[in-house]
Lab assay of single mutants.
Amino acid sequence: MVQKSRNGGVYPGPSGEKKLKVGFVGLDPGAPDSTRDGALLIAGSEAPKRGSILSKPRAGGAGAGKPPKRNAFYRKLQNFLYNVLERPRGWAFIYHAYVFLLVFSCLVLSVFSTIKEYEKSSEGALYILEIVTIVVFGVEYFVRIWAAGCCCRYRGWRGRLKFARKPFCVIDIMVLIASIAVLAAGSQGNVFATSALRSLRFLQILRMIRMDRRGGTWKLLGSVVYAHSKELVTAWYIGFLCLILASFLVYLAEKGENDHFDTYADALWWGLITLTTIGYGDKYPQTWNGRLLAATFTLIGVSFFALPAGILGSGFALKVQEQHRQKHFEKRRNPAAGLIQSAWRFYATNLSRTDLHSTWQYYERTVTVPMYSSQTQTYGASRLIPPLNQLELLRNLKSKSGLAFRKDPPPEPSPSKGSPCRGPLCGCCPGRSSQKVSLKDRVFSSPRGVAAKGKGSPQAQTVRRSPSADQSLEDSPSKVPKSWSFGDRSRARQAFRIKGAASRQNSEEASL
């Protein structure tokens, strides 16, 4: 019999049943779409005989028809080659250093092939080196495509196609095609072959870009420019304004007297070369007005044109410092986490200390709560409330009815002989401070409620009492009544008793 458990639990079988086999339907690529829901599959020993999904071999995947050992070796080799080519560490840098020397040698020989004295001697060596480079780069490109299958997102032919569309893979295939075209054109020995050789060798310069396949330098440059984009835009904007204004004023001053400034384009060329401190010297002002304007705008514009270099330099320094700090933080993070875990385990398992309490023990206690009866409008029989619902239920009951529930009420002091009981919340009678006064009792026990209740009776009109401690106690149990005489010590004692009862009640409510 096959059962599914969608909550991750395992159904224990009877003692008479045989052992169960467990598997996940959602992990089987050969299962139909209706059953690939991630549910837990529990099947008996007879299920494989019936041809269940556990008995079927995997229909898809890279190692579907391969033995386990061969499949493990296949995956291990794939991961190894992918890490060597895409994430070089340790001795893997030897291969990348060899590729760099190969590319650099091709670049140097290409430069010498353009010089007439070394053209014949360098062409033969360059031809052999180009063949070696094409073979190495071609094999490396196909190995990269194959090894990318170790990543989940690059599996299958669609994943390989996605990997081949990456920018550096596109550069690799462009350089490979250009190198093959250069060799094919150079072997023909005609004029067209020579011109094609010179034009296609430009694409071989892109080999130097592939040295940084992970794009660390470009990411660093982009992060620095993005972090200081506002400062760079401000400096370039002001420098551009200085360039336009200086070129226009010098053009007006030199026009008609200097042949170097016949057009405004000549003035812009002079301004750009001057403000960037290049100074070719092919154009320069000759009149005193033009020289004065050139000197003034040079002092202003050079500072703004040189400002981005300082901004980028400081940004690079701060970014490198931040990377070093992050690297040290990552080195200290795992030991710190292990130290915290060890300290907590020692703290939680220390049996010699009796003052340690688990944080979840508070929620494991069961509280007896009286249940409210809507018919009699009273609190009758009580029941046990689950631990997770205790706090919310108690808050709702307290807010609606005004009752305070507590588990172990402390012993109440008995009323003394000299001070009789003053009210239901005086704190001297046991069992009276455990409940709050309802809204109805407060209204009818207050002086205003009594006056409103007995407004029509003649006794209420004739008998008038001065405010005393009895009425103030019933009005607000948490307030201290004001004494009408300064020498009345009994009223002071009563006030301290009320304060103590109120503080105890607040602490009990907070504990609930």
Rank of each mutant, 00 (worst) to 15 (best):
A306T: 00
G159R: 06
A185T: 10
H96N: 03
R207W: 15
A147P: 06
W269L: 10
D212G: 14
L268P: 03
P285L: 04
L293P: 09
N350H: 08
H260Y: 09
T349I: 07
N190H: 12
R214W: 07
L312S: 01
R144Q: 00
I340M: 10
F261C: 02
D259N: 10
Y284C: 01
A343S: 10
M211V: 02
I311N: 06
M211R: 14
A62V: 05
I238L: 08
K230Q: 11
L107F: 07
S195P: 00
S122L: 11
L101H: 05
V182M: 13
E254D: 02
D212E: 15
K162R: 02
L356R: 09
G239R: 00
L339Q: 06
L307P: 05
S352P: 01
T263A: 11
D266E: 12
D355E: 03
S314P: 06
Q204R: 12
L351F: 03
R213W: 14
A294G: 06
T217N: 13
I273N: 03
T287N: 10
Y284D: 07
R214Q: 03
G271V: 09
A185G: 12
W344R: 11
M208V: 14
L81P: 05
A193D: 00
L243F: 04
T114I: 08
F304S: 11
S113F: 15
H228Y: 10
F104S: 09
V250G: 06
A306P: 00
L221R: 04
T217P: 15
T277S: 06
H228Q: 01
D172G: 11
G159E: 12
V225F: 12
F248S: 13
K219N: 13
T276N: 01
K255R: 09
T217I: 11
L292P: 10
T378I: 05
G418V: 09
M1V: 03
R198Q: 00
H260P: 07
P335A: 11
S342L: 12
Y154D: 01
E322G: 05
H96P: 15
I205V: 14
L356V: 09
S247P: 05
C169F: 01
C242G: 09
P411L: 02
Y127C: 14
R210P: 15
A265P: 06
K283E: 02
L268F: 01
L197P: 15
I209T: 14
Y362C: 09
V320I: 11
T234P: 08
A294V: 11
R201H: 00
Y237C: 12
A337V: 03
F329S: 09
P430S: 08
Q204H: 10
A253T: 13
E119G: 13
R291S: 04
N258S: 04
A178V: 14
T276I: 08
N258Y: 07
L351V: 07
R333Q: 05
D259Y: 08
S358F: 04
A267T: 14
E231Q: 08
L203P: 15
T114A: 11
V250L: 05
L318V: 00
T296P: 13
V225I: 10
F261I: 02
L388F: 07
S199R: 02
G9D: 02
L85R: 04
I273M: 07
E130K: 13
G301S: 01
G8S: 01
L206P: 05
K283R: 02
V175L: 00
V250A: 04
P420L: 04
N190S: 13
P386S: 03
G159V: 06
L200P: 15
A265V: 05
R214P: 15
R333W: 07
L243V: 13
W360C: 07
G189V: 10
M1K: 04
A337G: 03
A253S: 12
A317T: 00
Q188K: 02
A196V: 14
S55C: 02
A265T: 04
Y280C: 06
A306V: 03
D355V: 01
N350I: 07
R210C: 01
D266G: 08
L339R: 05
N79K: 12
R213Q: 14
R210H: 15
M1T: 04
T194I: 15
R325G: 13
T263I: 12
N350K: 08
A309V: 09
R353H: 08
K230M: 12
A193V: 14
D259G: 08
T359A: 13
R353G: 06
G313E: 00
G315R: 10
